[in-house]
Each structure stands twice: as structure tokens, then as C-alpha cells.
Simulated assay, not measured.
Amino acid sequence: MDLQLAGKTAVVTGGSKGIGLALVRTLLAEGMRVVTGSRSITAELKETEAVPVAVDLSTVSGPVRLIDSAVMELGGIDLLVNNVGVGDTDDFSKGVRLNLLELPDDAWEDTFNLHFYSALRASRAALPHLIERRGTIINVSSVGARAAGAGPANYNVAKSALSSLTKVIAEQFGAQGVRAITVSPGPVGTGVWTDPDGFVGRLAKEQDVPHKAFVEQLVSASGVTTGRIAAPEEVARLIAFLASPVNITGNEYLIDGGMIKHV
């Protein structure tokens, strides 16, 4: 199926690995020109034809610098995907282990800077260019935004705010041709789940359970109907479809293997 993306331009945050890297590859395969921003530029990213920008998106100036670099490189922006997330595994783990009385303000601030404010700042910087081209913003949230009792509380709340931001953008700029959509993955086969030194791998070691068995336990306990975690490429394909010319805006799309049960 021709997604009619060839010749268009995209900015992807957090494109050095995981979902972001899979998305960069998918958009390039669809004929798009891609600029991506991340703290590090991995060997895998260098192998693609994307233009990498080394930038800390959790800072005030980082997202603006990325968008400015993208406009200089691409001449304009048709698609912005706010994907950057998780960050340091220790910070992520802290949000799981500590409750509201224990989790300090700086943990909340760091999490919101990376997961919410980076998207807000990138969106504000990109919107004039997206209005000009009647473009699209896709925010990568998480099923955690709907699961208050599981996962890092600060991460889940930040992702909930990100999902709400999507609605605001869709309503305020829809009449000017800009679409905004949320994609919320459940468990995905990124380093968080697959790396022995990642978040899930560390939990497995702490509980003295083999990594693979621990992943299976978590997936089962989470109620994932398909019984498996998603591949980053599956999330990337969904995002690419939503980036194509379809009359969809303001919506949230779950890709969670049936984890979220309520209507």
C-alpha cells in the first residue's frame, strides 16, 4: 500500500534506538527525508540515511535547536513524532520503587522534562512549519497513562499529560490543517525489556529469576491477550500509517496486545 509519504519530511525525537530507530528506518523506506534528535548517535542510526542531531531534548533549548536544525536541513516539516522517552534506567526504576511520599521533586521534574516538556517545546517550535504544510504531530505515549496502579508513577502521569497535549493541539490547530494523534504502546521489545542490564533485566536479577522467564511473567500478569510483547517495527508501521493522508486527529491508538481491557 502506498502511504503517500514519499518526498515528505519528518522529525523524530529519540531516533537512536528502540521504537525511534525502527520508525526512522520505516519512514526512510517510505521515501521520507528524516532528521532525528537524541543524546547519542548510535552506530545503527549512522547506518541509515537519516540526519542525526546530537541534542539533549530534556533541556529548554534542546527541542528548539532540533527543529531549527531540521528546518535548515529539510526546508520544512511535514511530520513531527515526539518519541523520546524512558531515559536513565535508574531514574525509571526509582519511579517504580518509591511512592508519592518518597519520590522527590527532582524525579518528577526530570521525568516531565523528558517525556512532556520535550514534546511541548518541539511541537511549539514546529507548529508554524506544520501549519504551512498542513502537517501532523504524533505523540508516543504509553498504556501506562491509563494504568495508575502500575509502573513508575511519575512516568505514567507525564505520559497522561502528553496524551492530553495531543487533544489540545488537535483542537487548537485542526482548522489550520494540522493533525495530532497519540500512539500508546504496551510492552515493546526495546532495551527496557530485552537488555539484561535494562529495567526489566535488573528487576529479574533482583528477584533471582531468569530474564526470559521474568518477561513472560510480567506479560502474563499485565493481561496481554496475545501473550507477547510488540516489536518496535510494529509500532513504527502504525505510526507511518497514521502519518499518511487519513482524516484522523485527536485520537489515541493502543498497540498493547490487548492489555487495556476497558472500553
Results as ranks from 00 to 15, higher is better:
Q176C: 01
T89K: 06
K46D: 05
V246S: 08
L238Y: 07
L100G: 05
V178Y: 11
G15R: 11
G186A: 02
G75Q: 09
T59R: 02
S69V: 04
D90C: 01
T225C: 06
S58N: 07
V183L: 09
V81Y: 09
V224A: 07
V192H: 03
D56F: 06
A221I: 08
M72K: 15
A43D: 15
G149P: 00
A158T: 13
G144W: 02
V86A: 12
V200G: 11
F214S: 06
L28P: 03
M72W: 10
G18N: 02
L3H: 05
V224P: 12
S40Q: 09
K46M: 11
A43N: 13
K261L: 05
G250T: 00
R133T: 12
V235C: 06
G87M: 04
G135N: 08
S16C: 07
V64C: 03
A240L: 01
S222E: 10
Y253A: 01
E44G: 01
A150P: 01
A230V: 11
P232C: 03
P196G: 10
A54E: 10
L66T: 05
F116I: 03
V192S: 09
Y117V: 04
G20A: 08
D56E: 13
K205H: 10
S58M: 03
A231N: 06
T26Q: 14
V53L: 03
T190G: 10
A221K: 14
F92L: 07
H129R: 09
N154R: 04
D88H: 03
N139H: 12
Q172N: 13
W193E: 03
G87Y: 08
G198F: 06
V55G: 01
G85A: 05
E233S: 11
E109A: 10
P104S: 14
W108V: 09
G177K: 14
A147S: 14
V11A: 05
G37I: 07
G62T: 01
I255Y: 04
A204D: 10
S69E: 12
L98R: 12
L162E: 07
A230Y: 07
A236P: 03
L127V: 12
A43C: 00
G20K: 09
T42Y: 05
A153L: 15
E252R: 06
D90T: 12
W108L: 10
I41P: 04
A230I: 08
K167A: 03
E234N: 06
A175L: 07
L74T: 13
T249V: 01
I181W: 02
G75S: 11
A175Q: 14
I67D: 11
R33V: 00
A150M: 13
T13R: 13
L242E: 02
V34R: 07
N139F: 02
G151Q: 07
D110A: 15
P232V: 03
K46G: 04
L45G: 01
V84M: 07
V55P: 00
A147E: 15
A126D: 07
S40P: 00
G174Y: 04
L101G: 13
F116Y: 15
N156H: 13
G227V: 08
H262Q: 12
M1N: 11
Y117K: 14
R146Y: 15
N82F: 09
R228A: 12
L5Y: 12
G135Y: 08
K261C: 03
V263F: 13
